[in-house]
Amino acid sequence: MIPAQFDYERPTSLEQACQALASDEDAKVLAGGQSLLPLLRLRLAYPSKLVDVGRIAELKGVHDRGDHVFIGAMATHDEVLRSPVVRDGCPLVALAAAQVADPAIRHRGTFGGSLAHADPAGDLPAVALALEAVFVAASAQGEREIPAAAFFVDYWESALRQGEILTGVKVPKLGAGWGFHYEKFHRTAQAWAIVGVAAAVRRSNGSIAEARIGLTNMGATPVRARATEAALQGVELGDQVRQACEEAAADTSPPADLHAQPDYRRHLARVLTHRAVRTATASP
């Protein structure tokens, strides 16, 4: 299909980009285009202008910042999953990025674009939520930080305001004792998650000291499986873990679509959370 007509700008600095967005309230940011272009082609979106942020140095790269990893919004999935800084500092991000779509899309799609798009079926939002990442946004008015828990508002809606650009995300390093796993359930290798589970688990003396669990595609936003997180605390590795994971779908309102009805998604959330936690606790 063919998109409706739009203007195109490709600024080379963050400041210019903020100006370009401020001057046109129907303008939209273009990152890797892997989600935005399909929307344009299907004529589900009609922006007047695309501001391509692909040439802005400030948005690029992955940086070790001591207690956290700063992932530039324009870092591609492929860069992220190969980055030693990410693999050491926040391995869960690399594990999930490796499961996004296929190699072609991972070379174009960006970390920031995936999060700004705020698709609850995307793999990275649940990870950012579980890791309690902090989102950095810039606009003509200046810069602000948004905690992950406040960033995802609704289906395809984030806390970013019109005119704001996500410059990058601060992902805290969790330190020693943590194990990670991203369990993605999908029908074909290239398909989106029917349900996904991002698990970060800290072990201590054969039991679980702390667990953080983010769920993909279990509602209008990525959600934390709070009941299971609480139930897992202090639990010995073994059968009790399964029992704690029975709560994984509590307080979720998963969508119905061609691939799954809500009751099946709830069931999957329970089974997959158990698998994710089990694998995370077994990982070195």
Binding site: R187, T188, A189, Q190, A191, W192, L258
Partner: peptide
Amino acid sequence: ADYLLPSAAD
């Protein structure tokens, strides 16, 4: 995305 075709990976 809705009409699922398998690929070699599947």
